[in-house]
């Protein structure tokens, strides 16, 4: 794109960051030219297809230029553009920038206007799958998945899907967190028995894995505080405590300190943890003092 040809009527606006600016980036001539035309557009607020094309050049140079993404959405709206190709463009830029806030937000903004039905949502979930295949703990991807599922109500199959993720790596804490989102997100009563059974199985596989233990702690805290949200509450606490007392792991011991009713047991386990979990010595001292 030869900018002077496309924008013969515009005068480029150089960057004015004052006398002897600090943190002065030595931009390439190409970067400077693109940005100078973009600054002019910001002044004229021209929402045209050539402006849209220019924003593409800006974000290709710097995908974190949130102003350009913002301006791009204004153009798309004003031109009543077809958003399907825009999602593809966004995926292309996103490919090399999986941790870029702007690109993920751009997808959300597009989807909120674009998504007609659940089929579109399923398509978007496939995109998330692809990102998670490269980085199974990508925070943005997990957050985006929640957004899609919540906004478009596509809850079915999500619990089974995330069981697959956790099955491959029980230490994928993002997966555990997502399970919580799915189990409690849709509303309705939760079968505590089946959640506890699943989680205790994972604890058994690796008693040194913090993730299922904290999930279990969360479940029992919530079910103790509001048992009406759950089914099959009776006997669960005893079952968990008994299991945890059988494991020589700091996470299992932590569960005992959190829930056992016998103060002497709590104190004894706290003292053990002060030695075994030495980096948290002060934390366990504090817990001991509060019993």
């Amino acid at each position: 794109m030869d900018l002077p040809t496309v924008f013969p009527d515009l005068t480029p606006t150089p960057q004015d960051d004052g006398p002897s600016p600090i943190c002065a980036i030595q931009y390439s001539p190409n970067f400077t030219e693109i940005m100078s035309y973009f600054r002019t557009l910001l002044k004229t607020q021209e929402l045209s297809s050539r402006a849209l094309q220019l924003t593409a050049l800006v974000v290709e140079e710097n995908a974190a230029n949130y102003t350009a993404w913002w301006y791009r959405r204004k153009c798309l709206k004003s031109l009543n553009s077809d958003l399907g190709p825009e999602l593809i463009f966004t995926s292309e830029i996103g490919g090399s920038n999986p941790k870029n806030y702007q690109i993920w937000y751009h997808r959300r903004a597009l989807l909120s206007d674009l998504l007609g039905g659940k089929d579109d949502a399923k398509y978007e979930l496939k995109y998330v799958d692809a990102v998670l295949r490269d980085d199974c703990k990508n925070y943005h991807a997990w957050s985006h998945r929640q957004y899609i599922v919540r906004s478009f109500g596509v809850w079915e199959g999500e619990k089974e899907w995330v069981e697959g993720v956790v099955g491959r790596d029980g230490r994928n804490n993002s997966g555990w967190s997502y399970r919580w989102f799915v189990v409690f997100g849709e509303g309705g009563e939760v079968d505590l028995k089946s959640e506890v059974t699943y989680t205790l199985n994972q604890c058994t596989l690796d008693p040194h894995n913090e993730s299922p233990f904290k999930y279990l702690t969360g479940l029992l805290k919530l079910s103790s505080a509001s048992p009406d949200k759950f089914l099959n509450v009776e006997g669960r606490m005893e079952e968990c405590l008994e299991k945890c007392k059988g494991w020589d792991s700091v996470h299992a011991k932590c569960f005992v300190v959190d829930f056992d009713e016998d103060e002497e047991v709590k104190k004894r386990v706290c003292r053990e943890l002060m030695e075994e979990d030495k980096v948290r010595r002060k934390y366990w001292e504090g817990r001991l003092a509060k019993i």
């Binding site: 600090i22 943190c23 002065a24 980036i25 030595q26 931009y27 390439s28 970067f31 940005m35 140079e61 710097n62 995908a63 974190a64 230029n65 949130y66 102003t67």
Partner: peptide, 13 residues
Amino acid sequence: LGNLSAGYSSLDA
């Protein structure tokens, strides 16, 4: 705080 190379263009925002 001084001059940064063109590689820092990705931090221009």
